[in-house]
Design a protein around this nucleic acid. Sequence first.
DNA 1: CGTAAAAATTTTAAGCTTAAAATATTTCAG
DNA 2: CTGAAATATTTTAAGCTTAAAATTTTTACG
Lengths: 169, 169
Amino acid sequence: MNERAVILDAETKVAERPADHEAELRLWLRLLTCTTLIEGEIRSRLRDTFDVTLPRFDLMAQLDKAPTGMTLGELSKRMMVSNGNVTGLVERLAALNLLERKPSPTDRRAQIVSLTAEGRRTFRAMARTHESWIAEIFAGLARGDIDQLMALLAKTKMSARAAVHGEAA
Amino acid sequence: MNERAVILDAETKVAERPADHEAELRLWLRLLTCTTLIEGEIRSRLRDTFDVTLPRFDLMAQLDKAPTGMTLGELSKRMMVSNGNVTGLVERLAALNLLERKPSPTDRRAQIVSLTAEGRRTFRAMARTHESWIAEIFAGLARGDIDQLMALLAKTKMSARAAVHGEAA
DNA sequence: CGTAAAAATTTTAAGCTTAAAATATTTCAG
DNA sequence: CTGAAATATTTTAAGCTTAAAATTTTTACG
């Protein structure tokens, strides 16, 4: 007759009540809102100030951390995006002389991608400004807040990873 | 000669040292990683289980909260996406009979969008499962963790909003 | 060696997303 | 009332993103 008020039969092992997880849902929405807000602001400033997209900036950031370059697959894994996505981004950045592709000496299927001198110079300049934007955006948090958030997000990441990979405990 | 070791001229009012904001930068990357991880999992489950995309689910969620419907502009604002984006999403959902568009009785420029009966039924079913996924993903957090995170993210959102709108304090 | 499975990458098709320009309508000052 | 500014929406062009299929090369088993 109705959905939630039924007194469950004694046979029922685990009560099948809706078990509302409102708190988790609200947390997820807030997390998403925060990230979307900040990401949008960074995206907008990158475009207006440096005429670059966030995915391109992210890709260059990965390469900047790997002086000897890395394969497309490695890039894909670190950026958490699909292989085909990286193919296109690398294509466009290469056309701008910001990075170069060289065949892997050990595997003819793979390519090694690395920043050009110009790419490195360009990225470093953008990164400096980017860091100051991040500082500005998080300026309302005290040092202790940041530490607490870091710890809680680490816990969140572990929890999410457990759900993403096998449900296995 | 070098970038950061120069002893600054006595005239220099505020030292222009890099003032590294490494902590904020790491926090931002962790926030982004968490959100990307969870969002990807939800996206994947929505596709596999209900053959629906996350943007469509989000749009339907907004409409479900507004029984009398809302305009495209209102939807755009609440979803934090562009107007043109909403136009396309609504187009595709309308083609599936999940929502309907009616001209606003008071403004001939605007349309009122609302879920159809089928759309509402479909959304409610998906939402129930979606909530259980979220609970699963955040299962590793204790109740206290959730409350702390909520509070810290509220603070983060306020800080970000201050940076997004006028720098004005 | 020969071949089947695995791995790295690209291609394809579809959909999402945005900024900017264009269109249509409303509001409001004079 | 009239025209200018504001508002709601759509269109356009470009780029991002994914999943799935296709291609090329490597690995490894027998």
